[in-house]
Amino acid sequence: MAAMKRDRNPLSDDRKAYFYLLPAFVLLVIFTVYPVINTIITSVKLDYRFLTGVYNGFSFGHYLDILRDKTFQRACLNTAFIAFICVPASLITALVTALLLNSIKALRNFLTTLYYLPQVTNIIAAGMVFALLFHTNSGFINLVLGWFGMDPVPWISGVGIAGSADLYTRSYIRCLFILFIYSLWQGLSLKVILFLSGLQNINPQYRQAAEIDGTSQWNIFRKITFPLLSPVTMYVLITSVITALKSYASVVALFGDSYGPIGDNSKMMITIVGYIIDSLGDYLSPGAISKASAAAFILLLIIVILTALQFYFSKKWVHYK
């Protein structure tokens, strides 16, 4: 009741509000709304030339080309790997870390701050450091493996992969592993903070009541903490999946402009955004921009569909107050 009333502001200031919104919306229209519409239109223009603006009618051909393109399929696979393997993994790690953090007092602020550092680290710098961590000769990982008597692993190596499918697969798996570790490291920070604050917003009385009833810790988590935390989980999940679908800079920083180890020319680790940027790269050749637009629109569709699905399923398990 009170909450309902709050929304109804008896003072209304219609016209002034538009002044407050004007700058934001001018920019939004120019740099967001118009581009989205234009992208959709451009994606179906045939032989569109950027410099002159001429094109030969409309066609969905670019979409078919892209969907048939091996590189695009690779891009989708890699992006899916980040969104559906890396994100859930870092989500669970973050949740566990937040639960641990929530149960301690001393050092909590210090650790939270420390865990947040990857978030404020330059994405390119971070990617470079990871590339170096996994460097065959100069990397920390192989150093540690060496302590345990293991031989150095050629983590990012394209030697011989062009000729051998087996070597290619191995190299690919290693690169995915690096990406996985990187995503875990990078994604933990924001999620830990959000989960932690979500946990702290849960009224301790629920927990105390359950403890008095003799409920086990695991059941307290399952029946109380997790349901009450579900809006946060939902928010974290949606935002991180969207972020993951947009991955690009980190991959370039980790694997270079060719998206793969030296010696690979299949763009092994390319992402969808990478594919868009690459298509855009030769914007002077006819059709290139349309191809990029079509890829962008496919990405947009994926994001919209996934977000809608997440909202749809969230109704079933998210517990909103």
Partner: peptide, 16 residues
């Protein structure tokens, strides 16, 4: 606009 990836806008913005 929050959900839309900035990267989608890049193409048109570049043309603009």
């Amino acid at each position: 606009a929050v959900m839309l990836p900035q990267e989608i806008m890049i193409i048109t913005n570049f043309m603009t």
